[in-house]
Design a protein around this nucleic acid. Sequence first.
DNA 1: TAATATATTTAGACACATCTAAATATATAT
DNA 2: ATATATATTTAGATGTGTCTAAATATATTA
Lengths: 221, 221
Amino acid sequence: MCTTAEENYLKAIFKLSYEQKNGVTTSSLAEHLATKASSVTDMVQKLADKELVNYIKYQGVTLTPKGEKIAIQLIRKHRLWELFLFQNLGFKWDEIHEIAEELEHIKSDLLVERLDQFLNYPLKDPHGDPIPDQEGNFPKNNSIPLSRLNTGTKGIVVGVNDKSSSFLIYLVKIGIQLGTEIEILEWHEFDHSVDVRINALTLIHLSYQSAQNILMSEKST
Amino acid sequence: MCTTAEENYLKAIFKLSYEQKNGVTTSSLAEHLATKASSVTDMVQKLADKELVNYIKYQGVTLTPKGEKIAIQLIRKHRLWELFLFQNLGFKWDEIHEIAEELEHIKSDLLVERLDQFLNYPLKDPHGDPIPDQEGNFPKNNSIPLSRLNTGTKGIVVGVNDKSSSFLIYLVKIGIQLGTEIEILEWHEFDHSVDVRINALTLIHLSYQSAQNILMSEKST
DNA sequence: TAATATATTTAGACACATCTAAATATATAT
DNA sequence: ATATATATTTAGATGTGTCTAAATATATTA
């Protein structure tokens, strides 16, 4: 059984594994978890003792199958709770992450399965992220960032990469949510920004950074 | 803000206050929390520093208004989550307490209010216990223990005093749940046990201890 | 009331998770 | 390749919540 702190480390290692393919560094973990490198070293050694991570001094960590399983279950719980908060309790897009960070640590396998059933075995959370099943398999995610759509194409917003409140609040403010239709009007060479039409109506201008963080359905017209 | 351990102490003090009117003793708290008297002394001193309890050495503790408010909010959260688990996720009577013990520590006032709304502002939890409102007021509880019903009267089961799994499992086994109708047939002088009829059908025999722990609606016929 | 039993508190220790500061290893630049 | 900069680890300390053992206070009994 893991403590909340241990679980948070496993989740962080899982997430950073995608950005830094060959082993997650101590300093990147420290930054991600808003803690000090020395604390990370301590914890990582403890996780290695428990055989949840592979750790070689000065060379970073990777998850063992055992550690990865726990990390994926945490992501599953997090995303199921997020959906519950959004769909059933009427929370806003930018309010759900923080509460789900706490709820994901509740220890009951039965609870997760019942919640999954209650939500009707959803495939995606309110940010468009795939929800792994009981065995830890992720449903295929066929979305692409808006920044890779060509001029003239249309698509539906199915998720975001950046889940920070500030970005989500910005999106809501300019009228973009899950399900919003966006048409690419014109790319600007000099800063890769783009003009788009929202829901066949409003014209707005998006920075390249925004465009990279908005995920669109692949089957665009 | 309180830690989980501190919250559990406040809740325990609140509960024991009803049994021991003039101050909760160190040893009773230690027993209730399955810990040692010395640990209780430590924690109680810390809670006194935070002005959540009144504490006089060797004389026990009482809650301050501030401490009581937190305790009641915890009970509110616990009972709302129990109802959610029972009603919406299909958990059994005896499975909900343990999970709610974890859920009650999730820190979000908005979450509690949204859950309350989602459950349609319920007055009682699945054990028949009253759910305090946002201000901490308990709805009136007009139930009495089965042990105080007279021969010939009928009543509806509206709750239990003992919420242990073993008792709840026993009740389900003999056919008693929330809403069950029970008719008092005959009291036995020598051990205060009682013969009853369940749902106008099954005859069973209840010990005095069981009778004390089953709560009935007052308006019996 | 004095002697004994019980309850409570204090003192000192430990595991957890964190920190700062110092030591050591790896990476980079001249 | 050597010097310097950066990353990482170790050592030692802190706060939380717990424990055991010893000291002290309260309650009970003769």
